[in-house]
Design a protein around this nucleic acid. Structure first.
Lengths: 197, 197
DNA sequence: CGCCTAATGTGTACAGCGTTTACATCCGGG
DNA sequence: CCCGGATGTAAACGCTGTACACATTAGGCG
């Protein structure tokens, strides 16, 4: 009735690979990561439980593809936030966008960072590196520290922001804070830790 | 042959609750988190698959107990490291111990931080808070910033250290670094970000 | 001492999972 | 036109978490 996919709805799906990714993303948005079973993804895509195996060697590969998508999405989100930041506020704005992304996409964010970035998924690794590049580029443009501290400051900025996101996401820090309180917390933390040396 | 448990090895175990925790910890040390099934824990403890349900309502509760143990263990590890730190090196030493703990207990560390700290497990939450307290107490003793930045600096220190541990643990940062390189990285990052304002 | 109840462990069962193996269907190029 | 590879389905296996009924034991009360 409403199945007006780009391709005909026949025995062959047309682009099941993308459809599976979308179905998995939908499931992630709806519930926690535990609800993401390969079979549920197949069901959501309207296909038999084994159809995914024609497009992903196993479940871990689907998860890696999801993580890759997540890193690309986070990267775009960060770039968009950076573009609208007030002058001098770029770092704080990036940090706030990072934390907000974690809270807005909890399961996906967890998937992205709570799994090894191993050799078996170079695309995921590349996507993660490119996300980091957005942050480190901004850090390089902003920071006033000696050259030999640049790398440490870049890594530290990512660690700081990612640590904030992780701790808040799992209720270790700032439990039950409202969004605006959280933005303020992120601002004060970033100001304090990354502020003018 | 080597089964000389503290209690007799009869129908009733004696202290199955602790034995299950130990078995689960062993499994975590041996493999990844995915290998930790309730049934495997029961097998390791030499008991039927349903015996754990007399001591933990469900698997999630066992995991929470593991996380609680992990936070207490991390807290002790941090305190021990702090006690042996050279004067003025306490923060760096704490950070290095934190990151090392993450790498030495990957699966447990993941369990501790990649699960919600919700209302349903107040013990876990308390243990996490007490771990944080070790860090923030040291931060309070060391930092030279204005009073209104204290809280931000405490939260930021935890976030920084935890972010470093997480990113390194999952291969996002400093892939394939040797332990001493990692210690140096942690030192430079902490020095750069937490250094004298 | 002897029993009775609660605590603790076992056995069986079920649905769901990831994955394998064999088979069905369809598309495109000779 | 037809045939081979790509893509889907069907059935099955062992594993999981968990519920239910049952067996065994420990310890307090007579």
């Amino acid at each position: 009735m409403d199945q007006v996919a780009t391709a005909r709805d026949a025995y062959h799906h047309g682009d099941l690979r993308a459809a599976l990714l979308n179905a998995a993303l939908e499931l992630l948005e709806e519930g926690d990561e535990a609800a993401l079973s390969l079979r549920a993804v197949a069901r959501r895509a309207g296909v038999s439980p084994n159809a995914p195996y024609r497009h992903y060697p196993d479940k871990d590969d689907l998860l890696a593809a999801l993580a890759t998508h997540g890193f690309q999405d986070l990267r775009r989100t960060l770039l968009a936030a950076e573009a609208t930041a007030a002058p001098g506020e770029e770092l704080v704005t990036l940090a706030q966008a990072y934390v907000r992304y974690a809270l807005d996409h909890q399961a996906l964010f967890g998937l992205m960072f709570a799994r090894p970035c191993d050799v078996r998924h170079p695309e995921t690794r590349a996507a993660a590196d490119e996300t980091y590049a957005v942050l480190s580029a901004r850090v390089a443009a902003v920071n006033t520290r000696p050259a030999d501290e640049q790398a440490a400051f870049m890594a530290g900025s990512w660690a700081l922001v990612h640590g904030l996101a992780s701790l808040v996401l799992y209720g270790k820090l700032a439990r039950d804070s409202k969004p605006e309180e959280l933005s303020a917390l992120v601002r004060s933390v970033v100001d304090t830790m990354c502020g003018p040396a």
